[in-house]
């Protein structure tokens, strides 16, 4: 296994109290595999990613427990210098908003080349050549002329390509992409996702794709982990989960999205609101919104039940959920 997150707990200390953003997350990614982490805002999907990358703001964030194994080393036990060496070289991250993630006062060539100067000790001249190569590779037209341009001179799709180039620069074995196409238009989104998938295949990288878009997930993922209120509620290979979800939350989400190929009647709506992380409901965090909730759901936190060899569901009634169609 390339990366394995075990029982991770992260909380944030705020003026109003302790917000429990991540409450015991377990997932793993193999080489060459795409894991989609699906969840709504506040589900803890990005915080988990930040903890893996080691870019969590601490304070106010605090890792309360758990382990993150990357190539059999527990990242949480490493010294800051060791983690810095891993970051960029062995794992890299692509952010949603390329414009605010790139430095506006440095040319894109300088920012791309910096990777080689810092990690590989190259001269600036050599690094610039490398930067042009990278821009070519992510299919930015006229890379040689544009290497001196600044981020604002590129379109949204091009900026996201530059972010991808930067993440790929040192050929890491793990990429975490946090909503990489959410800010892009559909036609550009398709270009960027294609590029990402192609580079992943080429370099046989593990990819953690964080998103809320069930369509994107269906397009590219091998496996899915669905998060709710800081927990994984269901993990499954991608085909099975769309066919027969084993958790009422996943089921509700799948039912609530309108379809492109049919007009449909009224949409199914998951009732209620996502939970407030300062006051996560006791028992199963989804129970106030769950149509299947029983007394036991209000008191007992459901463990991740084994549905079959490859599937897990954190629902006391996963069997009923699976059977009832």
């Amino acid at each position: 296994m390339l990366l394995e997150v075990r029982d991770l707990h992260v909380e944030f200390h705020t003026r109003d109290g302790v917000a429990k953003a991540v409450n015991g997350v377990n997932y793993s990614v193999a080489e060459g595999e795409t894991l989609a982490v699906l969840g709504e805002s506040g589900s803890g999907k990005s915080v988990t990613a930040q903890a893996i990358m080691g870019i969590l703001d601490m304070p106010p964030g605090k890792i309360r427990g758990g382990e993150i194994f990357f190539r059999d080393r527990d990242l949480l036990k490493l010294k800051p210098e060791e983690r810095r060496r891993i970051r960029g070289q062995e794992m890299a991250m692509i952010f949603q908003d390329a414009l605010s993630s790139l430095n506006p006062v440095l040319s894109v060539g300088q920012q791309l080349g910096e990777m080689f100067v810092v990690h590989r000790g190259m001269s600036r001249g050599d690094a610039k050549v490398k930067a042009i190569e990278l821009m070519d590779r992510v299919r930015i037209p006229a890379a040689r002329q544009r290497v001196g341009d600044f981020p604002h001179q590129f379109s949204g799709g091009m900026r996201q390509r530059i972010m991808i180039a930067m993440a790929m620069a040192l050929e890491p074995s793990l990429i975490i992409a946090d909503e990489p196409t959410t800010a892009l238009d559909v036609t550009v989104q398709a270009q960027v996702m294609d590029l990402l998938a192609e580079l992943q295949r080429e370099l046989n990288m593990g990819l953690i794709l964080i998103t809320h878009d069930l369509g994107v997930v269906a397009d590219v993922a091998d496996r899915i982990a669905v998060m709710y209120a800081g927990r994984i509620v269901e993990t499954s290979p991608v085909h099975e989960i769309y066919k027969a979800p084993a958790h009422p939350y996943t089921k509700g989400l799948l039912r609530s999205i309108p379809r492109l190929d049919q007009k449909g009647q009224e949409l199914y709506a998951v009732k209620g609101l996502p939970p407030n992380l300062l006051h996560i409901p006791p028992g199963c965090a989804f129970h106030p919104r769950c149509p299947m909730a029983q007394a036991v759901c209000r008191t007992d936190v459901p463990p991740l039940y084994t549905v079959d060899e490859e599937r897990r569901s954190a629902c006391h009634f996963w069997k009923e959920t699976l059977d009832e169609r």
Binding site: A190, V238, H239, Y242, L254, I257, R259
Partner: peptide
């Protein structure tokens, strides 16, 4: 280009 929520597609 719209991603369809159906992996068999």
């Amino acid at each position: 280009a719209v991603p369809v929520p159906d992996p068999t597609a």
